[in-house]
Design a protein around this nucleic acid. Sequence first.
DNA 1: AGTAATTATGGTAGCGCTACCATTACGGGC
DNA 2: GCCCGTAATGGTAGCGCTACCATAATTACT
Lengths: 355, 355
Amino acid sequence: MPQDERGPGAELVRPRARRGGGRPTIADVALRAGVGAITVSRALREPGRVSPELRRQVAAAIAELGYVPDRNARALASARADVIGVLVPSLTNNVFAEVVRGIYDGLGDSHLQVQIGNTHYSGLEEERLLQVFLSQRPSALIVSGIDQTLAARALLENAGCPVVQIMETGPDPVDMMIGFSHFDGGRAAARHLAEAGYRNIGFIGARMDPRSQRRLAGYRAAMEEAGIFDPRLVTTTTVPSSVSLGRDLLREARAKMPALDAVFCNNDDLALGVLFECHGVGLAVPSTIGIAGFNDLEMMQAAFPSITSVRTHRYEIGRRAVSMARAAISGERPPQRMVDVGFELMPRESTKRAR
Amino acid sequence: MPQDERGPGAELVRPRARRGGGRPTIADVALRAGVGAITVSRALREPGRVSPELRRQVAAAIAELGYVPDRNARALASARADVIGVLVPSLTNNVFAEVVRGIYDGLGDSHLQVQIGNTHYSGLEEERLLQVFLSQRPSALIVSGIDQTLAARALLENAGCPVVQIMETGPDPVDMMIGFSHFDGGRAAARHLAEAGYRNIGFIGARMDPRSQRRLAGYRAAMEEAGIFDPRLVTTTTVPSSVSLGRDLLREARAKMPALDAVFCNNDDLALGVLFECHGVGLAVPSTIGIAGFNDLEMMQAAFPSITSVRTHRYEIGRRAVSMARAAISGERPPQRMVDVGFELMPRESTKRAR
DNA sequence: AGTAATTATGGTAGCGCTACCATTACGGGC
DNA sequence: GCCCGTAATGGTAGCGCTACCATAATTACT
């Protein structure tokens, strides 16, 4: 007889193995603490509603068992996942990377998780991701921009959770909104160049998503105010932005308009490329050509010469968007549904034309 | 009698309102399609096991009702969320932003979602996030580096799901691993500078996380091989990297070692700062001073002069890490548990010393 | 003192899905 | 023709938690 004698029936009698893999559940904790399961649940979510005595017992039992609540079960039972869905058009674009960092930092010690979707600047992809996110019943949604498709907008309006649109301000928010005016930012940069004494001020733009378009519109407005607008000054492409592309576009712009004496770049990557191109072909900055960028990445002030740019408050937008979402989740709708965080023109060497 | 006559008992008889908010469930779809609920579930997850006939009926019912599966219920029932947890030390560091982009692109049309945690280069934070992630029973985990704390390593080993360590290679993987040798990368860059004829080759490093340390070790090995190592050539700080910091560190390095004729920078941001500092103080690059960076960001080749760097395959690492994870999730352990994607030295103008 | 309001706790019944097993239909090997 | 393996489908019983209601034990108030 083998030692491992269990009899042929043992297999049949054995209770079905626990599906979940044997992790302790709330029932185990309740048993150990000598309380009901619901009291454990409450001790975790609303400690104020449980007596200090029981709270201690529960905490001890949790520690002894190494209990970790199952987020999936919680989400199913409460019909709400502790997740904030975030949609951004790009993950590698430094601007959105900082927004995302602000979002993460804005979570603080809340139990919320972030789920990021990358729309690749595509409205259809945004719709698809919205569907996916909604299937989790998120606690809130943060979406970039104000140019959602009709279908996406409908999804947002029926999301059943707070929604924050970020990075731009505009009329008719779905719910809440925090950002700034790209039009005004573009206009401020262009005005600055005009005031510095430049006359043939070009615009260089890549990608040309809706926000870029509005910066271009702001540039145009400033140029027309000064009576120096000329369509040949505008050089754009839908190709994604890069430093090399900045070099290429400056070459293209100068070929078209040899008299060009300044450029306002859609973003700082292009501005850096423009600076390198000037170095490469021996154009003096700022005396022969002025350069202004947009976003004010850290490197703008370290460049030589330092580059004028429009500082945007990306990190702050991320943080405050989460604050607004958290407030709304707790039921307290913030007084301001629409927040304009503005921008700041940072004049530097690259636009100091000697008069 | 009021019109709205329901009798006092109506309130008690009324079936309890559906908790979930009235979204159609799998049972609704099953009813409509005239099949069992389980068949709907299978039609969605393993279409091959359902007859084409029923599959069509189910698809039609889903479309008519606008059914969207509840991910939370699925996760609870199957004890597995369709989520890949990703831990990175930084979200704004361009290198990790590209890894993350590769990860997202690697998902393809799978039903997987990504959950990103930002460890801020902290082992303790990594532990905490691992706990949070594990409470969702993720399908796989991707973690950066090989320097986990003991506790974090234990969590990973008992995670009960595939684990991929990325960005580095090293002995003793938890499960799978994909990356490259930072030591070899650092050594290759330093050797290149020595072979180009530079003699007083400095090292400039920021943050000095474990990967930076290994690059420094590689640099040192190359210097000792060439018999030109001097500890005064090394300038580091634990401050996070930036372009401005590159300028500062070059000033510091030159103050310490006026004979400095080349620098290998920990990363490309610093290298760019070094270039600007050289422009600022009128040092000729590459004749008076040579510059090499690490990672080969796009701007390196667009810079003037273009900057030598060590190209790392960040996007590819992200993509392939997901492939490996997906393979493991499907049960097919990939033949290679450890993948070294290598790196590529990109010699450019900034190290072309005229002999 | 008696009643209502409040607090603290527990029991029950799901949330919407899938694992597991049972059942049926069909074809092939003997 | 019978048995058995295979494929296709369904029923049942949870997964681990929380909403909802019930109950008991207080406190507040008339």
